[in-house]
Structures are given as structure tokens and as C-alpha cells.
Amino acid sequence: MVSSRERIKAFDKKLLKSGEYSVILSRLPAYIFELLLIVIATSGDKLSEMDVFIVMYAWGLTFYIAPYLNIWENRKNVSIYEVLKSLPVNQWDIFKVRVEYIAKLLLSRFLIMLGLQIPGFMMTGKILKENMINSLAAIGWAALVLTIYALPGISNYRSNKQIKWKAKQGGIMWKKM
């Protein structure tokens, strides 16, 4: 008896392998946003001055899990929950597996952020409190955003309003700046 989770993970593997665009290319935007991680973890600015970067970084991370949530079909975004709607698989199990991926992603980024503290520590002998707070805020905010992003209801809503939503987010960020 293969568990539901294992089936979903096997499906995800096949899904990524058979992707229209190579996995690397589709994550290109994410790689660019990853540079923000360095800024967040090393700049030493107060939290309120970092919030734009933190928001943008969360957005960049969505590119990692987007392939597990959307299919790009004919210039339209279709939610994976929609594709699997009539299949014998629990939508919440699908969601839980995505949350697992998000957790792994955020854990690795957190460890990188911790790692980035080391050179600074070597040089100044102290761990910058601001950097730790910024790092935690970035991870926490990303966790919230990504989890909501992955929800079944949101996913379906989103696949219909993809472009509007991203534009709205962009608008919020520009206002802050």
C-alpha cells in the first residue's frame, strides 16, 4: 500500500521532469532574487528599512514552488488542484506535501543566512542583532506567503487572477519605496 504522500511525491517528480521549460530556466527569476538573501543577512540595517527586500525575497521564493502549483498551458495558468480535482487524491494531502517542500526550502535558506553571519563574526567578533532579526523576519514572512500561496482555494483563485495579483504586490512594494 503506497501512501498518499508517496504517490504525490512520485507524481511531483514526474511532473518536474516532464516540465515544458527546463527546471533551471523556470527558476531563473528565483536565482536573481536569492541575491537579496545576502543583502538581508549581512547589511545590518534596521528591520523597517529592510521590509521591501523581505517582501521581494518572499516573492522570489514563490518561483521555486510555482511548478508544483501551476501548469502553464496555452498562455494560461491552471492550478494543479484543478487538474487533480476528479482524481482519488486528497487536496489537503497535496497541500501538506507542498508545505513540506516549503519547509525544506526555508530551512536551507535559514541555514545559509546563519552561515553568512560567520565572516562578519570572524571580522568583528560579534553577531549583529539586526541581521538575525532581518533573517528571521524574512523566513517568517516567506513562510506565511508561501503557505498561503499553496492553499487549494487560493491556488484556484490565483490561477484565474495570476497577473492581477502579482501586479498588486508590486504596487504595494513601490508605495513603500
Binding site: 507524481f11 516532464s18 515544458e20 501548469i71 496555452n74 482524481l87
Partner: peptide
């Protein structure tokens, strides 16, 4: 999966049955 063939759909989705 509209952009995939019939057989690919069976391969991808079949695992749930």
C-alpha cells in the same frame, strides 16, 4: 494536462489509482 499526450497523462495521473 492539455499540453501532454494521452499516454503521458496516463503515466502522470495513473499513479493515484
Amino acid at each position: 494536462f492539455r499540453m501532454k499526450t494521452g499516454a503521458e497523462n496516463v503515466d502522470l495521473l495513473g499513479g493515484f489509482y
